[in-house]
Amino acid sequence: MTDTSVTLLKGTVDLLILAALGEGGAKHGYGIAEWIETSTAGDLLLEEGTLYPALHRLQRKGFLTSEWGASENNRRARYYRLTRQGVEARTKAMKEWDRYSRAVSAALKPGAAR
């Protein structure tokens, strides 16, 4: 945790979960947290507990499915994976995010308004 960490925008957790599960298949909750940490080099400040309501929400929407399995160190852990709907939702959400973030960055660039 550094001073440069940013607090996550609401709704971004869902997107990050979809992204995490899109790369490398099924993960448990902690695995997702770790993926986020690694892939952002610790720049995002994630309150890890908020992953769990989000995981339930995404299951309700039919984007995720889960099953119990053995973890790397042989503990019982719940693994989440994307459903076909989830894969579609991920692609769509990532595209939207892309457009959104590009637009915002463009707007924030010094001298953007000509």
Partner: peptide
């Protein structure tokens, strides 16, 4: 119970 297991697993792993 399962929900609690999951949380415990998370904290322990971390």
């Amino acid at each position: 119970e399962e929900a609690r297991d999951e949380v415990e697993f998370h904290i322990e792993s971390r």
